[in-house]
Design a binder for these strands. Structure first.
Lengths: 221, 221
DNA sequence: CTCATACCTTACTCTCTGGTAAGTTTACTT
DNA sequence: AAGTAAACTTACCAGAGAGTAAGGTATGAG
């Protein structure tokens, strides 16, 4: 009725730039993760953010720029989540790794979109995107590798072979975690922590025994 | 010069449909894997296959149809490669799993494009594509799961808990293998079999000990 | 009240690309 | 040699979607 009171369907509120930017990135992460970079349509992102397309270009210059902003923010979030969880856990490396893994699963389960944007994009869209994705993945992997490495050096006495091995294990671990994510979707019955616990059981015990000399070779039993 | 002798630059040979179809799929797998489904351009695929665009549509009806054909062929190839390697290895489940894993790595290393098309595509492009990718992944996972399951039942005496567990392990394993693929690219020095051996060491020993009762729990050392 | 500024929109343009119409050429059969 | 079917092409259309021009409107400062 009134002219001052806004129609409730369309709040049409005007919002400061910093807030709107956040909303746009929120929307963009969702659409990018659902459709993929190329198939994502800027108009849809804008609508989801409650504004019109030119605003997106005013704030982010281009679709590519918007995507880069998404990747940067989500990578930072994930790395922080992981690091903080590990730090909070304190104590032994394996407890810290377990806390980190659990946090990772919680993140991927709760903020599926973020993970998809970070990890399941064809990086071959442009030079800038490839670079940003590489940097993002490097950041996340560095956190995981650090934890794994401390676990290894804890067991083998600071051998420098550890760094190399830790990188391998970290990659395998993150890949496994990512894949298990899919599996969890088809088994919503099993508890969320179950996955991280299972992985820890497999990987950690395996790793410990390997470091203790319990190797497996093709011709062994 | 001659009219009969073809110019060597452009053989322009006419080729039977079945052969041309194979060439088109070859080209398509390459371009799809490099650019992703949406960013891949049919003209480029056609040129790479040595023909013009309408031929692609004559043989495959649509871009979507072409992609489905790619996925179908590569999934079949990978599953066969895996199964045959395992069969050839014979013997104990772990030897078969190791042979399968090695074959998998060889496949991914040698035919990177195929794997990328199968596993790193956003399945949200269309209903048909999502269905085909799901089916393809199901096929591949079934092979791996079968091997893992036989390994588990070999150790625990045919418990039916195994099926559930095997699926988890198989997913984790394939995810790890996929991720390790990236790692291998940055470490071309380490032998190709090294990766599968490392994974076997981690996963198999871990799994064996877990089945033997050696669980890990948050509060344990 | 006015005015400056920051927020926001409608209504385009222009390129890229999936898909097709209409016809041409080769090679095999009879 | 003629006929015919399969292989192949050039040249086009139509829609989608990235990016922009030009201007409208709320809101806080003076």
């Amino acid at each position: 009725m009134g002219r001052v009171t806004r129609v409730k369907d369309k709040p049409k509120r005007r919002v400061p730039r910093s807030v709107r930017e956040r909303e746009i990135v929120d929307a963009a992460v969702h659409v990018f993760s659902q459709r993929g970079y190329r198939a994502a349509v800027v108009d849809e992102i804008a609508e989801l953010a409650g504004i019109s397309k030119p605003m997106v270009y005013l704030y982010f210059t281009s679709k590519e720029g918007l995507f880069v902003a998404c990747v940067r923010r989500e990578a930072r979030r994930l790395a922080e989540t992981f690091r903080e969880a590990a730090q909070r856990a304190g104590g032994s490396p394996e407890l810290r790794l377990w806390a980190g893994l659990s946090a990772f699963f919680a993140f991927v389960a709760e903020r599926r979109d973020s993970w998809v944007v970070l990890h399941r994009q064809a990086p071959e869209q442009s030079e800038a995107i490839a670079a940003e994705l590489a940097e993002a993945r490097r950041t996340v992997m560095a956190e995981v590798t650090a934890l794994v490495a401390s676990g290894i050096s804890d067991s083998d006495g600071g051998d420098h072979l550890g760094e190399f091995e830790a990188e391998f294990v970290a990659h395998a671990l993150v890949g496994a975690a990512d894949a298990v994510t899919d599996w969890m979707e088809r088994h919503p019955d099993s508890p969320p922590d179950g996955a991280s616990l299972r992985l820890m059981n497999m990987v950690w015990i395996g790793m410990r025994d390997v470091l203790a000399g319990g190797t497996w070779a093709p011709q062994a039993p």
